[in-house]
Amino acid sequence: MFLDFFKKSKKNSAQKAKERLQIILAHERVSNKAPFLDDLRKDLIKVVAKYVDIDPKEIDVSLQKDNSIEVLEINIPIK
């Protein structure tokens, strides 16, 4: 109907729910599985900063699943 025409331009709420869930759950699955990631990140910053100049904010520690192998990925850009 006439009003439906305007409604359709808005993303429907079910789609939004699904997207929000996928984002939050991706995050929660990792932190529940590897609750040590935060501590590991802090320790890494301490150790690496002793030897090279780094920006702590740039350090990225994450657990990835590649097929059936789990990979701990650590990214440390040097200044």
Binding site: N12, S13, A14, Q15, A17, K18, L21, Q22, L25
Partner: peptide, 14 residues
Amino acid sequence: KKGDMMSKNDVLQV
């Protein structure tokens, strides 16, 4: 149908 509830497939994908 109105897009205001996740469908069976939406839930399964999550």
